[in-house]
Amino acid sequence: MVLLRSLLYTAIFYPMSLLYVLAATAMLPLGQPAMIRAARSWAWLHRFCVTRLLGQRVRVEGEMPEGPFLYVFKHEAMFETIEILGLFEKPAILAKAELTRMPLWGRLALAHGVIPVERDAGATALRAMMRAATRALADERPLCLFPEGTRVPHGERPPLRSGFAGLYKMLKVPVVPVALDSGRVSPRNSFLKRPGVVTFRVGEIIPPGLPRAEAEQRVHRAINALNA
């Protein structure tokens, strides 16, 4: 049954996603608001497919306020990268720059407001990223970051990448850590996706201005709250 569900999901969600990409590409001249609407519509398609085809449900524990916050998410599957587009009205997601160079999708991501992160770039790229992040916060868009840098198997607790500390220090905004357990039902690099509940647990807001070690410790503990 798990194999059949996974086959149906793959056969329906990915071709439909291609149609969304093509439609959104045609809407590029309409600007960012159109891209944001298209992304939210794609997120609703994803929610429909995971719910109806895979038997997965989403549970959010706590409140996710909109506005100038830096959200940091546990990262276990592709699942949350799409769900974020529906959980917020207009999130600004920080993502590795390679994704914004993908054919078709990369242009749409940049038009939506995805902020490229050049991991090995110098000061010029860092300043460009900070300017983009500052503009997003000024527009009351929540910034969304996966501070571990990549998807990790459920239960693992790698240290945070250094990029989080830099953003925390320079942006001076409250941090909202979010734990999740998508890897239990949609394991990394696995075709099979199991039914179950994916929980997003919102942790205590971390104020700006804390020492780096304390901020990182509180974030690390909060985003791993579902790994016990």
Rank of each mutant, 00 (worst) to 15 (best):
M1Q: 13
M1N: 11
L4P: 03
Y9D: 00
A11F: 12
I12P: 00
I12C: 13
F13G: 06
P15K: 07
P15Y: 13
M16K: 13
S17N: 09
L19Y: 11
V21R: 00
V21A: 13
V21E: 04
A26I: 12
A26E: 05
M27Q: 09
L30C: 09
L30H: 12
G31T: 06
Q32W: 07
A34N: 07
R37M: 09
R37S: 13
A38L: 08
A39R: 00
R40E: 09
S41F: 05
W42R: 01
A43H: 03
R47Y: 08
C49A: 13
T51H: 15
R52K: 15
L53Q: 01
G55F: 15
Q56C: 05
E61W: 03
G62W: 06
E63R: 10
M64L: 15
M64I: 10
M64R: 13
P68A: 07
M78G: 15
M78C: 11
F79V: 01
F79H: 09
E80K: 02
E80I: 06
E80N: 04
E80S: 10
I84E: 04
E89R: 15
E89S: 15
K90E: 14
P91C: 09
I93Q: 08
A95G: 11
A97V: 12
A97M: 12
T100H: 08
M102W: 15
P103R: 05
A109N: 07
I115M: 03
P116M: 06
V117N: 02
G122D: 06
T124D: 08
T124P: 00
L126S: 11
R131C: 08
R131W: 03
A133V: 10
T134G: 11
T134Y: 08
R135L: 14
A136L: 05
L137N: 05
A138G: 13
E140Q: 14
L143M: 09
G149C: 12
R151M: 11
V152R: 14
P153E: 00
H154A: 05
P159H: 08
P159V: 08
S162I: 10
L167R: 00
L167W: 02
L167H: 05
L167G: 00
Y168F: 04
K169V: 04
M170V: 07
V173P: 01
V173C: 05
P174W: 05
P174G: 04
V175Q: 00
V178I: 14
A179H: 03
A179L: 01
R184D: 03
V185D: 02
S186K: 02
S186L: 14
N189V: 10
N189W: 15
S190V: 14
F191W: 15
K193A: 07
G196E: 02
V197W: 08
T199Y: 04
F200V: 01
P207Y: 06
P211K: 07
A213W: 08
A213R: 14
E214D: 09
Q217Y: 11
